[in-house]
Computed example of a mutant assay.
Amino acid sequence: MTIRLKDKVQELTPSEKLVYSFLPRGNMNAVSLEYLANVTHLSTRAIIDIINRLVMLGLPVASSQSNGNDSKSGYYKYSSIDEFESDIHTIEGRLKTTSQKLNAKRTALAIMGDDFFKDDIPVLAGQNTEQLEFKFVYHSKGESNNAIDVRSRINSKDSRISN
C-alpha cells in the first residue's frame, strides 16, 4: 500500500495545513519561526508543536541552523535526497551529543550524590576569577571510557559559573 503526500496533507488540521503551506522547498529558502508566527498569526509555541507533529506524521519537513555557507536557519520542506540525508546526519549527531550529556549527568550524580544538588561551591569561596577544568568520565553502551572536558569561568564575586 502506497501512501501519497497529498493524502497525508489532507489529514492535517487547518492550522497544520496553514503552517505546512508556508514552508518553502529547500534549505536555501528556509523561513524563521518568527516569520511563520507572523504570517499564520499563531504563537511560536504553536508553530513548534505543529512542526514537530508534521515531522512525526512523516511529512518532508526539516529545520536547519545556518552553517555560514550555503544554508539559512529556519524551517523548510526537503527538496532533494541530499537535504534529507544531511538532516538525518545532523539529527544523529545531536542524538549522540545528547546521549553523551545524559551519561555525563548520570555519572556526575552517581559520583557526587547529594552534593550534586547544592548551590554553593565552598572550595572556590574567596578565590580570584580563574580558568578551571573539569573532566567527567562516562560509560556508554558499546563504547569504551569517554571523557568530556568542561571549561568554566568562576566569578568569585557571586560564586556562580559563567561563560
Results as ranks from 00 to 15, higher is better:
A46Q: 07
I161H: 03
M112V: 03
R106D: 10
S144W: 04
N67A: 05
V150L: 02
V31R: 07
R151K: 00
S86W: 14
S64V: 10
K105F: 10
E83N: 04
K118G: 01
T13V: 04
A108I: 03
S99V: 07
E92G: 00
N67K: 04
T97G: 10
K6C: 02
Q65G: 12
A30M: 09
L102M: 12
S71V: 11
S144Q: 13
P14N: 02
R45S: 14
Q127T: 14
D120F: 12
G113V: 06
S43R: 00
A147F: 09
G58K: 03
Y35S: 11
Y78S: 06
G113A: 06
N29P: 00
M56I: 13
E83M: 02
E11P: 00
I48T: 03
I48F: 06
K8L: 10
S73L: 01
E92F: 09
S73F: 08
V150A: 08
L109A: 08
N163E: 06
K17A: 10
K105Q: 12
D115F: 13
K105W: 12
M1E: 06
S162T: 10
G68S: 07
V19C: 07
N52D: 11
Y75C: 12
S152P: 02
P24A: 08
T107H: 00
S64K: 13
S80R: 10
I48D: 05
T129F: 11
I50E: 02
F136T: 13
A125P: 01
H139C: 05
P24R: 08
R53S: 13
I50A: 05
A108D: 03
I47D: 01
A147N: 12
S64P: 07
A147T: 15
S99Q: 11
S66K: 04
S64C: 12
D70V: 08
